[in-house]
């Protein structure tokens, strides 16, 4: 390599760094920085009026999993925290399954419409996104409360005599979550089904497959990337959901998001809140890793 070439290589390397500098700055300030602060906070001591005292402590992490009895000094498993974890996880998984069951036929139906109609229906699916989630959640509350539209309608139709108590139950929370996160399932499913070659259905029927076999052996395996993407897109925000459980759960159905908020607010235990946030991040990252794995597996075989 001549001297001139070496200099040119150095210059282009330096220019490369310079060009990527804006992105690096944004990444540091917006992503890595706050995350590091949260991580550091989780190892500090809570201050008396919130905030943190700069003194190293394991207590934030310890109290995620165990409780210390103030009087006896004994340790026991933090049941309340585990209940909240379990509720968040099970409700999120249930929401994901329900959005898939509702979303798949919806996405299929839209994808098989003529192109013009598709744009219209997709617009309708995304329409709730343009409305504030708080307002939408209150609206759902109006529908399902005892004097709400749903119960009035059912009583008027004679299906039930007394209103079904839905508000502040896990069912209400589930209805709300499915409603809020449904578009996040429908859109990736639609994208996958839209790419699906409908001629394969005829090939399947021609080769002696029943409708059920065509669904299970041909459609579902081929749109699998869409199913995985939709599931991740629903599961991840569900785990951290805050507004929906707050309003529809009436404070009784606390989920991880609410619990974390509590620690930074009334709980005045920032290190615990920070530790919980990091834990949530780990759960989500593991879920994403599964997703990437599944996709790569797909590519290896394909």
């Amino acid at each position: 390599m001549s001297l001139a070439e070496a200099r040119q290589a150095r210059t282009s390397a330096r220019n490369g760094w310079l060009l990527s500098a804006p992105a690096l700055v944004i990444l540091t300030i917006a992503a890595i920085g706050p995350l590091l602060i949260v991580l550091v906070y989780s190892f500090l001591t809570p201050g008396d009026y919130g905030n943190v005292v700069w003194e190293f402590s394991w207590n934030g992490w310890k109290s995620v999993f165990v409780e210390e009895d103030i009087f006896e000094g004994t340790l026991s498993l933090a049941d309340a925290h585990l209940t909240i974890f379990w509720r968040s996880l099970s409700l999120s998984i249930l929401t994901t399954v329900l959005t898939f069951i509702v979303g798949f036929p919806t996405a299929w139906w839209i994808a098989t419409k003529p192109p013009k109609a598709r744009a219209f229906w997709l617009f309708l699916i995304t329409l709730p996104f343009w409305t504030n989630i708080l307002v939408r959640t209150f609206a759902i509350n109006q529908i399902i409360r005892n004097e709400g539209v749903l119960n009035s309608l059912l009583i008027w139709a004679g299906v039930i005599d007394a209103p079904i108590q839905l508000t502040y139950t896990p069912t209400a929370l589930l209805i709300g979550m499915v409603y809020v996160y449904l578009p996040l399932m429908v859109l990736p499913l639609y994208a996958a089904i839209d790419r699906f070659d409908m001629r394969l259905l005829e090939a399947g029927y021609d080769l002696y497959a029943s409708r059920w076999q065509v669904l299970r052996r041909i459609i579902l395996p081929i749109v699998k990337p869409g199913i995985i993407a939709g599931s991740i897109l629903v599961l991840v925000p569900c785990l951290g959901a805050y507004v929906t459980p707050r309003i529809l759960g009436g404070g009784k159905m606390m989920m991880l998001g609410n619990f974390i908020e509590l620690q930074f607010g009334q709980g005045r235990n920032w290190p615990l809140g920070a530790a919980l946030s990091i834990l949530l991040l780990v759960i989500v990252t593991v879920a994403l890793l599964f997703y990437v794995r599944a996709l790569n597996g797909e590519k290896r075989n394909g």
Binding site: D197, R199, L200, E202, A203, G204, Y205, D206, L207, Y208, A209, S210, I218, P221, I222, N301, G302
Partner: peptide
């Protein structure tokens, strides 16, 4: 009879092979 119950098979113009 539906196609899956006819002992008749088709070679499609687009081949329609199963990509998975």
């Amino acid at each position: 009879l539906p196609p899956n119950r006819r002992p008749v098979n088709t070679v499609f113009q687009s081949y329609a092979l199963f990509p998975h």
